[in-house]
Design a protein around this nucleic acid. Structure first.
Lengths: 234, 234
DNA sequence: TGTACATCAGTGAACGCGCGTTCACTGATGTAC
DNA sequence: TGTACATCAGTGAACGCGCGTTCACTGATGTAC
């Protein structure tokens, strides 16, 4: 049953025409009709809500995320949200959790790609910055907002964050073992390197007018200097 | 003429008591009465508005900044704003401009404090991070929000930003000249260093639970590695 | 096999609120005559 | 010196809007008897 031919749709249009008087205000964009989930599948709406919110983030409308706006984007009525979330903060928490997992998984995967430890370190850092460049709105959501107090970041997210940061620490430690880094404290140097990566990702997207050094130049400096990489001896 | 004894104040209270019915809702916090500016001094209100907004930022209520909320904080009626600003974005632009000047001036001043170039570099970077630690809400306003499109950052602000960044570049260049840095490109290294400082300032205030290395440890690593400082030869 | 009922997956209308913006106004102070 | 007037620095009431939240409801689908 499509929207334009359903009896309900006709009724809606009639009512609005009358309510708006003869001059007739512009009709709001027709909400695509949503076939409700089958019995027992009600939980699917939770996913749909989260993905509607992610679509808003990706479209640069993160600031406009409200309970009603997410409901509109998801094609449902506002009260339906409450079956799945206590409020808009919980939705944002779920969005942050999902994006956070995505970032961490990409970093970990990249950190396993090469055999040379210096290359692995570069690959992990580049993966981090690639995410920030490919999904600037998601990255901003993750690192330029306060996380809602009850974001309820789960064990899975915490573990993935630990794994991603550990990729960095271990890469530096591997470089030390291979005689390619002078780091005296891989953890402390990883903290500094993460700071550098985040700062660059953040400033780069914010201040587009700044005369940034070209290409991978800054990443290279961050990784080599903060990872205390020593030239290969071959 | 104090609020409680002025005829106007009495009238207001009466009206409210009647409007709220006999049960009487809680009265809103009495707005301290504001003696209006003298004739010809109307421009002062602009400053008062900006400082009301800064107070809100410092109180952690930056997200709650609206035209009406700023007016309340300033002790004036909402329409009075329009004599001085086109809207809340212009207020925020002025706030950002003022905070930006403050940060840049502190960095420049610190960068002139010592005679040893390595000490000057450290001093400038520490001043940057000190601002972020002392005024975390202002720092977040400057670097974790989009700036309003019509923020109208003036020439003065641009010049001070250039001066502050130049302090960084010149400090590194001075270190090179003094044989204390291996930098082959002070500008590119300053970009990396600024990234590191911003990233650290930003992450440090955001993720308080993280096991940050103690004290100045991370700053030291950022400055020495990204500034490519060589040990003194004495 | 039929049928009454329970459950599920939502909806529509309504509420009170704070918001941005407009409009006509107020009351003190300076100024021209 | 007096007085009418202009200007300045704001105010108060009102508007329409989108918001979060509540409530009673709807209509399809499964289930017990």
């Amino acid at each position: 049953v499509s929207y334009s031919t359903s009896p309900n749709a006709c009724k809606l249009i009639d009512v609005r025409t009358i309510a708006n008087g003869p001059q007739g205000r512009e009709r709001p964009p027709a909400p695509r009709p949503r076939t409700r989930n089958a019995r027992g599948e009600g939980g699917r709406l939770r996913e749909e809500i989260v993905h509607a919110a992610i679509r808003m983030v990706d479209a640069g409308r993160a600031e406009a995320i409200t309970l009603r706006a997410v409901a509109r984007e998801a094609g449902i009525s506002a009260p339906s949200i409450y079956d799945h979330f206590a409020g808009v903060e919980q939705i944002l928490g779920a969005v942050i959790g999902e994006c956070f997992l995505e970032l961490n998984e990409e970093v970990v995967a990249a950190g396993q790609s090469a055999s040379d430890p210096v290359q692995r370190l570069h690959a992990g850092c580049e993966a981090y910055l690639r995410f920030a460049r490919r999904r600037p709105e998601r990255y901003a959501l993750l690192f330029r907002r306060e996380w809602p107090a009850d974001a309820d970041i789960g064990e899975q997210e915490k573990a993935s964050a630990d794994a991603a940061f550990d990729t960095l620490v271990q890469s530096i430690a591997d470089c030390v073992r291979a005689g390619r880094s002078d780091s005296d404290d891989p953890f402390a140097d990883a903290v500094a390197l993460w700071s550098g990566l985040h700062g660059y990702a953040s400033l780069r997207t914010m201040h587009e007018g700044f005369p940034w050094p070209p290409g991978q130049e800054t990443v290279r400096r961050l990784v080599e200097n903060l990872g205390r990489i020593r030239a290969a001896q071959d």
